Simulated scan of single mutants.
Amino acid sequence: MSETPDKPIQHKNDDLDAVLERIRATDGDGTDVSVRDILTAAGTRTFGPVVVVAGLVVLAPLIGDIPGVPTLMSMLVLLTVGQLLFRRRHLWLPRWLSERKVPRDKLHTGARWLHKPARFLDRFTRPRLTVLMDGGGNLLLALACLLVALAMPLMEVVPFSANGGGLALMAFGLAMIARDGVVAIIALLLTGGTLGFIAWQLL
């Protein structure tokens, strides 16, 4: 099993575009990059950034379409948010998950494609409606993340639904990082729309 260090890696710039740039600089073992490599490059040692990374991986072209990747990210989110609900201060991941790998070239291509959307989001994310990020509001966000993660295996068979799930996860993570209640509301709306779309497709 693997556990993150007690002290987080610190970076001067913790906005989404900076996270993507660090991911693009990840070499891994030359051909593949592990989940642990991605999280280390992103500087993530807390819960919000991990949820952002999971959403980005699902959204990234050529990566999110690989069979099994959405389900892998759902496991990451389930473990992450589960520990948030139990008020752990630092993230723990089992070795079998932290050492799972994705192709390095596809990861870098996806991160490069997401730079423009990331810059746009960074301009508008700031602390707002912070009451939604504390107490019961924080619990609601965690439960919504769990719903998205539990639905991820279905998203592998329902066309286009994984995009909605990835967007929702990324929005939840951004809301946690920036304490932005407006982004949290958007994430909840994305969650409801994505789950409704899946139900409509399957019924």
Rank of each mutant, 00 (worst) to 15 (best):
residue 91 L to A: 04
residue 172 F to Y: 07
residue 109 T to V: 05
residue 93 L to N: 05
residue 153 P to A: 13
residue 112 R to M: 05
residue 128 R to A: 15
residue 103 P to Q: 03
residue 18 A to V: 02
residue 120 F to H: 13
residue 44 T to F: 09
residue 42 A to L: 00
residue 54 A to T: 04
residue 117 P to A: 14
residue 48 G to D: 12
residue 156 E to G: 09
residue 25 A to N: 04
residue 202 L to G: 12
residue 115 H to P: 00
residue 57 V to M: 15
residue 95 R to Q: 15
residue 91 L to Y: 03
residue 51 V to Q: 04
residue 167 L to R: 06
residue 193 G to E: 12
residue 185 I to A: 11
residue 159 P to C: 06
residue 57 V to R: 07
residue 200 W to A: 14
residue 159 P to V: 11
residue 179 R to W: 07
residue 72 L to H: 07
residue 10 Q to N: 01
residue 102 V to Q: 05
residue 178 A to R: 11
residue 109 T to M: 12
residue 164 G to P: 04
residue 53 V to E: 02
residue 65 D to A: 11
residue 104 R to L: 08
residue 67 P to G: 09
residue 41 A to H: 00
residue 142 A to Y: 04
residue 33 V to K: 03
residue 158 V to H: 13
residue 185 I to F: 04
residue 92 W to A: 13
residue 104 R to W: 07
residue 202 L to F: 14
residue 93 L to H: 04
residue 179 R to S: 06
residue 177 I to E: 07
residue 163 N to V: 08
residue 191 T to G: 08
residue 89 R to S: 11
residue 89 R to Y: 06
residue 144 A to K: 11
residue 22 R to C: 03
residue 61 P to A: 00
residue 149 A to L: 00
residue 185 I to M: 07
residue 54 A to K: 04
residue 133 M to F: 02
residue 140 L to K: 12
residue 85 L to T: 09
residue 64 G to V: 09
residue 160 F to W: 08
residue 168 A to L: 06
residue 181 G to M: 04
residue 116 K to Y: 08
residue 61 P to E: 02
residue 202 L to T: 15
residue 70 P to L: 12
residue 144 A to N: 11
residue 190 L to M: 14
residue 144 A to T: 06
residue 160 F to R: 09
residue 6 D to R: 09
residue 125 T to W: 08
residue 158 V to Q: 13
residue 136 G to P: 01
residue 83 Q to F: 04
residue 101 K to E: 10
residue 26 T to R: 02
residue 134 D to W: 12
residue 48 G to E: 12
residue 145 C to S: 07
residue 46 T to E: 03
residue 152 M to P: 00
residue 84 L to Y: 07
residue 93 L to T: 02
residue 158 V to A: 14
residue 20 L to T: 01
residue 88 R to P: 01
residue 28 G to D: 04
residue 100 R to S: 11
residue 72 L to V: 13
residue 113 W to G: 00
residue 140 L to V: 14
residue 93 L to Q: 05
residue 105 D to F: 00
residue 89 R to T: 03
residue 122 D to Q: 13
residue 44 T to L: 08
residue 119 R to F: 10
residue 42 A to W: 00
residue 31 T to S: 13
residue 80 T to Q: 13
residue 186 I to D: 05
residue 58 V to G: 09
residue 137 G to H: 07
residue 43 G to S: 02
residue 100 R to K: 11
residue 9 I to G: 00
residue 2 S to G: 08
residue 143 L to C: 07
residue 55 G to L: 11
residue 66 I to R: 14
residue 196 G to D: 15
residue 65 D to C: 05
residue 146 L to F: 06
residue 56 L to F: 10
residue 157 V to Q: 08
residue 187 A to M: 14
residue 172 F to M: 06
residue 105 D to L: 03
residue 171 A to L: 10
residue 100 R to E: 11
residue 87 R to E: 13
residue 12 K to V: 10
residue 119 R to S: 12
residue 36 R to T: 11
residue 35 V to S: 08
residue 22 R to F: 03
residue 86 F to Y: 01
residue 38 I to L: 14
residue 144 A to R: 14
